[in-house]
């Protein structure tokens, strides 16, 4: 599952979580999970001011990084000046774990 900006949503993606109006999770969902996105649906979401969606899989990659390993390499390049520093290395590790979890959830997420 991945949270993506609505602007990057495309027909064919599958909603992994219910979509709520105006990000208010207390109200009624505007659209249920499991629905396949269409152009009409996306423009409806735009009209009711939805900013982001949760979709199945991990469709939006970092530019030039299709796999977790490539994301990790980008992170290491970004962190190259602080990897020898304990706090820098710690943050790098946390970020890697974050992406490993986010990108690796593709198969084990159906339970939700």
């Amino acid at each position: 599952m991945q949270k993506i900006p609505l602007k990057k949503a495309a027909p064919g993606m599958i909603l992994a979580r219910d979509v709520y109006r105006n990000d208010s999770p207390a109200g009624m969902p505007a659209c249920g999970s499991g629905i396949v996105l269409t152009d009409v649906l996306i423009s409806r979401f735009e009209q009711i001011n939805v900013q982001a969606l949760y979709v199945e899989g991990y469709p939006l990659k970092e530019p030039g990084a299709a796999t977790y390993e490539e994301v990790a390499a980008i992170l290491d390049r970004r962190f190259e000046k602080v990897l020898s520093d304990p706090l820098g290395a710690k943050l790098n590790q946390i970020y890697k774990e974050y992406f490993k979890r986010a990108m690796g959830e593709e198969s084990g997420d159906e339970a939700k």
Binding site: I74, F79, E80, K81, V82, D85, L87, G88, Y95
Partner: peptide
């Protein structure tokens, strides 16, 4: 900087000061 969001001029994460 670590998130890579936006562009402040250089791509390097600064050190997190203890």
């Amino acid at each position: 900087k670590a998130s890579g969001f936006g562009d402040s001029g250089d791509p390097f994460v600064p050190s997190l000061q203890s």
